[in-house]
Design a protein around this nucleic acid. Structure first.
Lengths: 97, 97
DNA sequence: ACAATATATGAACATGTATTCATATAAGGA
DNA sequence: TCCTTATATGAATACATGTTCATATATTGT
């Protein structure tokens, strides 16, 4: 097993290993939201949301669209949805703890 | 989407979001290894390996078997293998970066 | 041009967690 | 029993990263 590949996998998992980030992703999996919507829906500060969105942008996980003063975010592609769904499915099927 | 469920998912991802831990898991996916084998194969200190193994034990991801002075580790069940494989498959199919 | 609103961003700070260091425990051999 | 080897473990340390705080930028309305 090549270490380089495992490192990539590590980094993949890291993206989803933060609760607020994951909550944002799941919210976005339901549609298009502007930043203020995200902060109010999830009770995360505006700054924290923006920082997470910046990271998600850098990783190309979200798509950005400006409408006037507001900026809307959506998931970048259907692939992300599949990942989220797969994760959920996996958690649900084992009722540990 | 229930926050509690997402939190569980976060914790699931966290397990795999560390490089050395993941390398240990992939090594164990190939068979049974004692601690000293793991440290030499992966170039991680004995202590670091033991700490990671402790964590993996607590999460029931590995199975322990003592033979004399040595202690052998294996993955707890086939399910873990499937998770690892799925992750790899996912990484391989997208050639980002 | 100015004020108000929405979002982004850099730096400081807080926190979680992985590693190291020192040492403990357990087993086997002399 | 004493010594050696294998592994575990607690505490200290190092480090990565998420949040906050203060402020910048961008857009709209007046």
């Amino acid at each position: 097993m090549e270490d380089k590949l495992i490192l990539k996998l590590t980094n993949f998992y890291k993206v989803f290993a933060d609760n607020n980030r994951l909550r944002i992703l799941f919210l976005l999996s339901e549609g298009k939201y502007k930043v203020s919507d995200i902060t109010s829906h999830l009770n995360i500060s505006q700054s924290a949301v923006s920082h997470q969105l910046q990271l998600l942008r850098q990783l190309d996980l979200v798509r950005v669209e400006r409408v006037g003063k507001e900026i809307y975010y959506t998931l970048a592609d259907h692939h992300i949805n599949i990942i989220l769904d797969y994760g959920l499915m996996h958690i649900k099927e084992k009722d540990d703890e």
